[in-house]
């Protein structure tokens, strides 16, 4: 059973949908934790830490993601190799930068030069995840920073009255309550994150846009069993359907999550739920 839709190339196309979903699944919690860290740093009473947090939020939010993607992955890769080089080969004497060449000792290469291809691909994928997480972490930090300040003052004052320290108030009162204020913002951030995945091919990952372009492009008779003209329109239509579906599913899940989080909260929504149950 072999036909046009089951060629190896098409199989790669189908697999790349999984790649995109996997990236989303890993990036979302990672970006959230970056965001949490960023927001905590921005709130910090230690000035340099607070500057760092605010600077991270302001700078990364201020730059178009595409500009980041175009140079950040190479920078990240070189940074890692630079650190490993200093740790693993302390007595290396050649300069690391020779003209435009970036040369580290063989043991510091990431992944090692003779690693199999899948290791290289996994490494490239994790760099992409990290880049996405750094970019979207800044947006998440902004949302969480706002959400932490949105927790009603009365709640904090009550905690203080109970003799809680600043740290205890933060972990026991602010963190559990902030999610309901953060969820609309985070939900939208998730939507933006899914919409940013067509740029994955810029990060060297063979994603759905890469394969849609590749499969849809003009194919002559000489190099394929299935010659065709410019079919990119149809492949992009598949992508469109995929993204609309993903959006729809996300909307449903987020609405449910919102209902769940609202339960028992000191908000209008929580009040309405309480009344309906009573």
């Amino acid at each position: 059973m072999s036909c046009y839709l089951t060629t190896g190339k098409h199989m790669n196309f189908y697999v790349s949908f999984g790649t995109v979903l996997l990236l989303l699944a890993i990036t979302a919690p990672l970006a959230l934790s970056f965001g949490f860290g960023g927001a905590m740093a921005a709130r910090s009473r230690i000035a340099p830490l607070s500057w760092f947090g605010k600077g991270y939020i302001a700078i990364v939010r201020g730059v178009p993601d595409i500009a980041f993607f175009l140079f950040f992955v190479i920078a990240l890769d070189q940074a890692f190799e630079y650190i490993r080089h200093h740790v693993k080969c302390p007595d290396w004497t050649d300069p690391i930068r020779q003209g435009t060449d970036f040369i580290v000792c063989a043991e510091a290469k990431l992944p090692l030069g003779n690693a199999p291809q899948w290791v290289h691909e996994a490494y490239g994928f994790s760099l992409a995840v990290l880049t996405f997480a750094i970019v979207f972490g800044a947006f998440a930090a902004n949302v969480l920073f706002g959400a932490m300040r949105a927790v009603p003052k009365a709640q904090l004052e009550t905690a203080e009255a109970y003799g809680m320290t600043r740290r205890q108030t933060f972990w026991r009162i602010v963190v559990p309550q902030m999610w309901v204020y953060a969820l609309p913002g985070l939900g939208n951030l998730w939507m933006v994150l899914t919409k940013a995945t067509p740029l994955l091919f810029l990060l060297g990952v063979e994603d759905i846009v890469y394969w849609a372009r590749e499969l849809g492009g003009i194919k002559g008779e000489r190099f394929t069993d299935y010659p065709h003209g410019d079919w990119r329109m149809w492949y992009f239509l598949v992508l469109l359907v995929f993204y609309l579906g993903l959006t729809r599913v996300s909307e449903v899940v987020l609405a449910r999550l919102m209902r769940r989080l609202t339960r028992g909260q000191a908000t209008a929504g929580g009040e309405a739920q309480r009344k309906a149950a009573a």
Binding site: K9, N12, E214, F223, T224, D225
Partner: peptide
């Protein structure tokens, strides 16, 4: 490791099998 583009037939391209 040989780096290529894979989108420039007949020089280099991805064949039906994805290679």
């Amino acid at each position: 490791r040989m780096g290529t583009e894979g989108a420039y037939a007949p020089w280099n391209f991805i064949n039906d099998a994805g290679e």
